[in-house]
């Protein structure tokens, strides 16, 4: 449920309007993730005596709306004044979990008024129906990354595939999806796969030849993405890079990306594969590594 800054026919306590004065509302969320579930702990924070009185009398409710659009998961949780915690099975959610706090009318509410209403509502009263939204907190989004997923495992953010059409001779890099796709002409693909899986000495050489340039290309595009930066945060390969960079104490985000040396970052993420590749060149040549396969 995405809350837009919209107008209601009665005062609603939100951060994006001034229907109420000297008032605020939110429900803070603490999360704890394990492999099997995510536990969310909710603590309401309300500054408005009139709404507090309605909550105390049961005429209004603290409610948290939880939604994972991808898996069609949607649930509401009624939160008591002292807070509540719930667990959601990891099996029910994927990608993104949106959480939005509300205060809603528990039943029909006639003649509602609040002493903190903006003076423009001077003396006005409102009849609210059951479920009417009376206050909206800050919407929060949680990215669901399964721990056993490929996150922070840099090589697996690449998908190296074969272009079956023998006429195709170009290498294509496609980073519009969740992985960085590297498409190789058929004969090149065969050599790459054979060497990459059978010859450990050749691996850093191949990575330096293919993976590093692909990674630099992608990072350079992020660097120059400007207003389109948010699109990259949607892609799993970029989030994996951010997470892997964090492990080596590097922050990759909208404000740091412009000053990042993409070659340096790519090398660090790939554990200096270019240097290792050069060192391995003699071994590859001696053992008839690259080019030794028919």
């Amino acid at each position: 449920m995405h809350i837009k800054a919209k107008l209601y026919p009665y005062p609603v306590l939100t951060s994006f309007n001034n229907d109420y004065l000297d008032s605020s509302f939110d429900i803070s969320v603490e999360d704890e993730k394990s492999e099997k579930e995510i536990t969310l702990k909710f603590s309401p924070e309300l500054k408005n005596e009139g709404l507090k009185a309605l909550i105390d009398s049961g005429e209004a409710l603290f409610v948290v709306h939880i939604e994972c659009s991808y898996t069609s998961f949607r649930r509401i949780v009624k939160v008591p004044i002292g807070g509540a915690s719930i667990s959601i099975s990891a099996n029910q959610i994927a990608e993104l979990l949106n959480i939005c706090p509300f205060i809603v009318a528990a039943g029909d509410l006639f003649g509602y008024s609040n002493k903190n209403f903006n003076p423009e509502y001077d003396g006005a009263t409102f009849d609210l129906e059951k479920g009417s939204i009376m206050a909206i907190g800050i919407e929060k989004a949680y990215r669901i990354e399964k721990e056993d997923d490929e996150v922070a495992n840099i090589p697996s953010i690449f998908s190296v595939t074969e272009i079956i059409d023998k006429q195709q001779t170009d290498i294509i890099i496609d980073y519009t999806g969740d992985k960085i796709g590297i498409r190789l002409p058929s004969d090149v693909y065969r050599k790459f796969v054979t060497q990459n899986s059978n010859n450990p000495n050749a691996q850093p050489v191949l990575h330096a030849m293919l993976i590093i340039p692909a990674l630099i290309k992608c990072l350079e595009d992020v660097k120059h993405s400007g207003a389109d930066y948010y699109q990259y945060e949607e892609r799993r390969w970029f989030r994996s890079i951010q997470k892997a960079a964090k492990k080596i104490n590097l922050e990759v985000n909208e404000s740091t990306i412009s000053s990042i040396d993409t070659f340096e970052l790519a090398e660090k993420l790939m554990h200096n594969t270019t240097s290792n590749g050069i060192k391995n060149l003699s071994k590859v040549a001696v053992e008839g590594g690259i080019g030794g396969e028919n």
């Binding site: 595939t161 074969e162 272009i163 079956i164 059409d165 294509i172 796709g181 498409r183």
Partner: peptide
Amino acid sequence: SDERIDTLATKENQKTI
């Protein structure tokens, strides 16, 4: 596997498949 799906779905391979 993801890689095999990518091979089948890759734009350059779609006509062949």
